[in-house]
């Protein structure tokens, strides 16, 4: 059996990659994919903990997260479509009509 620490380490790496990608990447869709990566790192952590703990709580939480992520993706992609219609671009640096 794979030890818990290995799975957790993978989860932390995935989460960090997602967070780093969120900050570095310059395309809205890619940034959104990085968020999905972070959520899946969370799912992995839930599953890893659920294997060690009694009960099915952790596995159940993963389903909640998947459902919520799907709802978020539906709304998020619609917002991104509206962005593309307004600007003909998906580059994050173009989204700057308000001064910082």
């Amino acid at each position: 059996m794979i030890p818990l620490s290995h799975i957790l380490l993978l989860s932390v790496i995935l989460f960090t990659l997602g967070a780093a990608g969120f900050i570095i990447r310059r395309n809205v869709i890619t940034v959104f994919m990085c968020i999905e990566l972070m959520l899946n790192a969370v799912n992995l952590a839930f599953i890893a903990f659920a294997r060690r703990l009694p009960g099915l709580d952790g596995q159940l939480f993963v389903f909640f997260v998947i459902v919520v992520a799907a709802a978020e993706a539906a709304v998020g992609l619609a917002i991104i479509v509206a962005l593309y219609r307004n600007r003909n671009s998906l580059a994050i640096d173009d989204v700057d009509s308000m001064k910082l």
């Binding site: 957790l8 989460f15 968020i35 959520l39 969370v42 839930f46 903990f49 703990l53 939480f61």
Partner: peptide, 17 residues
């Protein structure tokens, strides 16, 4: 907002663990 939610959720995962 989604970025922040991911952090909150990761915190929950560790509390659960």
């Amino acid at each position: 907002g989604s970025f922040a939610t991911a952090f909150f959720l990761y915190g929950i995962a560790f509390v659960y663990g």
